[in-house]
Simulated assay, not measured.
Amino acid sequence: MPPVRPFTDSPPGPTALRRIRVALLILGGISLTTGLNGAVLRLGLWAPVVSDRLADLHGPLMVLGFLGTVISLERAQAIRRPLALLAPGLLGTGSLMLVLGAPSALGKLLVIEGAAAFVLVMLGLWRRTRADLVAAQTLGAFLLLIGSVLWWLLNVPDLIPVLVVFLVVTIASERAELAQISMGGRAVPTLVTLTFALCVSAVAAVLWPEPGLRVLGALCVLTAAWLFRDDVGRRMIRTEGFRRFNAVALLASNVWLAAAGLTWVIAGAPQSTYSYDLVVHGVFLGFGFSMIMAHAPTIFPAVLGRALPYRPVMWVPLALLHLGMTYRAMGDVLGSQHLWQAGGVVTVVAVMTFLITAGLSVVTANRGADSTAHPAQSSSERTES
């Protein structure tokens, strides 16, 4: 008989952890692709899978399922504790259950548990550092938890302010963390002040939509202006390669955040589908996904355990994203369904194209050339980007 291996509670090794992280990233990718399928259905066009359920789940899959899973996965890697992977695992699994048609209560409960686990991860990071920057990121995690709980109680449009602030605070914190040197000593105090104001305005917008959304919109404009002025984008726009790509993605994302905020300031609680569309997709697509494209070659290697080198072909999905957002915004402003649909299709193609180019970049990366593949690989230049 073969010897019986003794039970051990030792943590998984680096290879096993890397495989788990990749599996969780794939789980988030499932939320993304099914969410994009739902997006096309909501545009009133043909999609690979025709399902009213996927159309209704479009927003939660994109924000809670994809963004929640990926962001919590990156933070779990930062704390370097295997148990922290429960957060992205629960968020991704809950979203998958909803996609597969499991009882809504089960899927939503798993998402809530994943968001709660994410809060615990962030509290662990804050206890380790006691840094104001991490405190701001922790507040962002609390907003994800609040949003997932509100999803149990309210319709998706009613919880949009909370999810918007979750994304804005998370990304602004990431930018302040990556660019502390170039943004100067005022970066963290500014971030903390904006984070507190954004969180209060998000709660106010849920309770009193008309005045609350106008205040929230003004704060989004202020955040975009701060990032545009103090972040590295304006200085790196004159460089080449990855730095220029990064700069364009950063600057363009801030424009869409400002446009969404300005829409809220002018319109207050959206009274039309078009104003609602401009706010939601201005934040989550124009701002959020442009930032993802900017950060991918810098952040994803830590999650994947493999380099994601910058390739010039990455300009294609970035250009498509902002071209599509431009068409979509024109359709919203002019009330043109054709422009709105065309812009929506182009943004879906942009996201899918980015997934393909990023995947091919990882697969074809030569480990021996990782240090020269793009300038964001060194720790000092990571700070600058």
Rank of each mutant, 00 (worst) to 15 (best):
D277S: 13
A376C: 10
S31P: 14
L123C: 06
V49W: 13
S148G: 12
A116Y: 08
M236L: 15
G184T: 07
I299Q: 05
P12C: 13
L120A: 14
T33D: 07
S182H: 09
L64A: 15
G92V: 08
T298K: 15
G344P: 01
K108A: 15
C199E: 05
W340A: 12
A258F: 02
L17A: 08
G335T: 10
R238Q: 12
I30P: 09
F7L: 14
S31C: 15
L25R: 00
A141M: 03
L145S: 05
V206S: 09
L257F: 06
T170Y: 01
Q341D: 12
G29I: 04
V313P: 00
G331L: 12
R235N: 14
G343I: 05
T223S: 11
I181V: 15
H58W: 11
L73A: 10
T239V: 12
T69R: 04
P209Y: 00
L143M: 13
A204H: 06
L67S: 13
G185V: 07
I237S: 09
L85W: 03
L222F: 11
P48F: 03
R367N: 12
L98G: 09
P157I: 03
I171E: 11
F284P: 06
L125N: 02
F287T: 04
R186L: 13
V169Q: 01
G185S: 13
F196W: 12
L125D: 04
A307W: 01
Y274E: 04
V280W: 00
V63Y: 02
F7W: 07
G92C: 08
C220P: 01
V206Y: 02
V351Y: 02
A16P: 08
M236Q: 15
D277A: 14
R328P: 07
I71D: 01
V346C: 07
P317K: 02
R127W: 10
E113C: 15
D230P: 01
A365E: 03
A205N: 09
F228I: 08
W256N: 11
S104K: 10
L41E: 10
V134P: 00
L339G: 11
L250T: 04
F166R: 06
A135F: 13
A76I: 06
I237W: 07
T372Y: 10
A247V: 04
A84K: 08
L178G: 04
F354L: 04
V165S: 03
M1K: 13
T383E: 13
A87S: 15
L27P: 08
H338Q: 13
V279L: 06
G324F: 02
V168Q: 01
T69E: 06
G212D: 04
L85F: 15
R42M: 09
G29S: 12
R234C: 06
A296E: 02
L194R: 04
L163P: 00
V221R: 00
I30Q: 06
A117I: 06
T357L: 11
G241M: 11
H374S: 15
P211Y: 06
P6T: 15
A269P: 00
E174T: 12
Q377E: 07
G233K: 06
L27S: 14
H374F: 07
V164L: 08
T193V: 13
R75F: 03
A376D: 04
L278W: 01
G29A: 11
L194F: 11
M183P: 06
R75E: 02
A23V: 11
G124Y: 03
V280Q: 00
W315M: 10
A365Y: 03
